[in-house]
């Protein structure tokens, strides 16, 4: 019963998705499967057959970082970086479900992703800033 995580990291050689605990607790292996955030360490690979999978490698388009990635850089949302790919996936998922989150919603949206470096404050800032950027971009494109 291979894990989706092993298929991603070993068969697809996409090592941006990390294994932090293998028990669905840390969220470092978060990916978006058929539009839903999941812990890839807890998904049997067989259940992902034919599914649409988005990993951290599919978040930036070419050289252009996603607004969430950009904000993590500017706000200090990444330190050691090992939780970052999963955290970015959780943030991307949150902003899709809830484009204008308040701080409580951001904290709830990231609650399954453990970070040992930041104390979460700068990650929360990063997600809030990414939401603002998205609004700005939307407004600019409208005007």
């Amino acid at each position: 019963m291979a894990r989706l995580l092993d298929v991603i990291r070993e068969d697809l050689e996409l090592t941006g998705t990390k294994e932090g605990c293998g028990e669905g607790e840390c969220g470092a292996c978060s990916v978006i499967l058929n539009g839903k955030l999941v812990n890839s360490c807890l998904v049997p690979a067989v259940q992902a057959e034919g599914a649409e999978l988005r990993t951290i490698e599919g978040v930036a388009s070419d050289e252009q970082l996603h607004s969430v990635q950009e904000s993590f850089l500017h706000c200090g949302g990444a330190q050691c970086g090992i939780c970052t790919p999963g955290m970015v996936m959780a943030a991307v998922d949150l902003l899709k479900r809830c484009p204008h989150p308040d701080e409580a919603q951001i904290r709830d949206g990231l609650a399954g992703n453990l970070c040992r470096c930041t104390g979460y404050g700068k990650i929360v800032d990063s997600v809030a800033q990414a939401a603002e950027r998205a609004i700005q971009v939307a407004e600019e494109s409208r005007s």
Partner: peptide, 9 residues
């Protein structure tokens, strides 16, 4: 129960 990624599964 868990958090979002668990709740989706």
């Amino acid at each position: 129960t868990g958090a979002m990624a668990i709740q989706n599964r």
